[in-house]
Design a protein around this nucleic acid. Structure first.
Length: 471
DNA sequence: CTCGGTTTTCT
DNA sequence: GAAAACCGA
């Protein structure tokens, strides 16, 4: 029997359309599937994302077992763990799929050099993105794009590969299996009690895609903005851990009976993911440093009052129902509807003038789909300091946004049941409602539901002044 | 004058 | 994206 190949899984927790796995199968070698919980060289995933990862690893382990194989789990510094496994199994090669943030790149580069020096064949692949982050460049300046639309156009001109590689139903096993740690289960953080709606893992990801393509994608272009509608793909957490490939999303969506408009909009969202990854790749400090340097001088609010506001934001007690509904959805479900993410993020940054990095950190902790590229790039986008960012005068009005995108109030009331009795536009500005209306609705402002922590008009003008002074 | 919708302006 | 400015009925 030939020597085994170690396939090192990281954020590609799937078998189908996994290029590292494909290379191992093509080499006709026994596969040793390895996952290392390396907490030193990657941004440690947040609490909810870790819960997801553990479920996903379990699903991967089960699937491997069904196919005559196993998942080997190790913990600690990746280089030393890999070396140890190499000593134990004498592999002919080590394969993995590339990651794109600085810590991982540095780690992987060092490992690659070390193994090559020891005559061990090492290969890395792209199984995460449609294009490598260095691949798409502007024709004229030969630089990475800083604006989404021309970037995405260039991607499409380049041509998107939609060939899918399907994994075999049986894998070759090594003559002797190395030891593996037991899979652990991360406990959910407090309040996150409604995550049973999800099915982490490759099978769950495929189910989610198929449900989306057979039902919810119809009307996606407009429907995706309405949080009460089941009109979004809900694929983000599956993509985060690589349970499904973007190539597959493209291939299957192209083959589905979907209107051009809906398809274009959905593909553009995948495009934003590509854009975020290339932005992160070219700006390794994206999490800590504003892409536009002048924002580093921003006078973010600090001190006791700002801390109270930050707590109210996290708890969903700002007194703005659409913001609070989103923040409560996040805490309870590990998810927040995209439109509401923008409203809630804008509120923290522009109404409360609290540093976007603190919002980014909270989303990172609580989102099941918290992604090192998407989360960071999107927060910079809302703050106005990112790539192709929202202009500073684009300040969401949380009252109008609620009225416009949750007109029936179904979404808002799902997470703020204490406002169930309010109907119509008043739901989004209960402090403006007549007292008998509030009484009938059984709402005691300041008790059953908070008064707004900041007045919209005041906050808007304050933000405009500061952002203008910065520019 | 006033109500509604549309256009412009805001880096 | 929102508010102010504008405009026709």
């Amino acid at each position: 029997m030939s020597q085994p190949i170690i396939v090192w899984f990281r954020q590609d927790l799937r078998l189908d359309d996994n290029m590292a796995v494909a290379a191992c199968v093509e080499a006709n070698a026994p596969m040793i599937a390895l996952f290392i919980d390396d907490r030193q060289h990657e941004r440690q995933a947040g609490a909810v994302s870790l819960w997801w990862r553990d479920q996903s690893l379990q699903a991967l382990a089960d699937e491997l077992q069904r196919r005559g194989s196993q998942l080997i789990l190790r913990e600690g510094d990746a280089a030393s763990q890999l070396n140890q496994l190499i000593d134990e199994t004498n592999p002919q090669a080590v394969f993995w799929n590339r990651q794109y943030y600085a810590e991982s790149i540095a780690r992987d580069t060092a490992i690659k050099a070390d193994l090559q020096a020891r005559q061990i064949n090492v290969e890395s692949f792209n199984s995460t993105l449609l294009f490598e982050p260095w691949q798409i460049r502007s024709k004229t300046a030969n630089t990475p794009f800083k604006v989404f639309t021309p970037f995405w156009k260039a991607c499409q001109t380049h041509g998107i590969d939609t060939r899918i590689w399907d994994a075999p139903m049986q894998f070759l096993a090594p003559s002797k299996w190395p030891q593996s740690l037991a899979l652990t289960k991360t406990n959910l953080p407090e309040g996150a009690h409604a995550l049973d709606q999800w099915q982490p893992g490759e099978a769950g990801a495929r189910k989610t895609l198929h449900r989306f393509l057979s039902e919810n994608i119809h009307g996606y272009a407009d429907g995706r903005d309405f949080p009460a509608k089941p009109a979004t793909s809900r694929l983000a957490p599956h993509l985060r851990w690589g349970e499904i490939s973007p190539r597959r999303l493209f291939a299957e969506t192209s083959a589905a009976p979907v209107s051009d408009n809906d398809q274009r909009k959905f593909f553009a969202e995948i495009g934003w993911r590509e854009f975020s990854y290339q932005t992160l790749f070219h700006n390794p400090n994206l999490k800590t440093t504003c892409l536009q340097p002048k924002f580093e001088a921003f006078p973010w609010r600090e001190g006791a009052e700002a801390e109270d506001d930050f707590e109210a934001w996290k708890n969903g007690t700002t007194g703005y129902p659409i913001v609070d509904a989103g923040m409560r959805e996040l805490r309870q479900t590990g998810y927040m509807h995209n439109r509401v993410r923008m409203i809630a993020a804008s509120f923290l940054i522009k109404h409360l003038l609290i540093d976007w990095r603190r919002g980014e950190a909270w989303f990172w902790e609580r989102l099941a789909d918290a992604d090192p590229a998407n989360n960071t790039a999107s927060w910079q986008w809302v703050a106005g300091c990112g790539a192709d960012a929202a202009p500073y005068f684009r300040i969401f009005n949380p009252i109008i946004q609620g009225q416009k995108f949750d007109p029936e109030g179904h979404y808002t009331k799902r997470y703020i049941p204490e406002l169930t009795g309010l109907s119509g536009k008043m739901l989004f500005s209960p402090w403006l409602a007549k007292s008998d209306l509030l009484e009938n609705a059984n709402v005691q402002l300041g008790q059953s539901y908070p008064k707004p922590i900041v007045e919209h008009d005041f906050a808007r003008n304050r933000a405009l002044d500061i952002f203008k002074a910065l520019a």
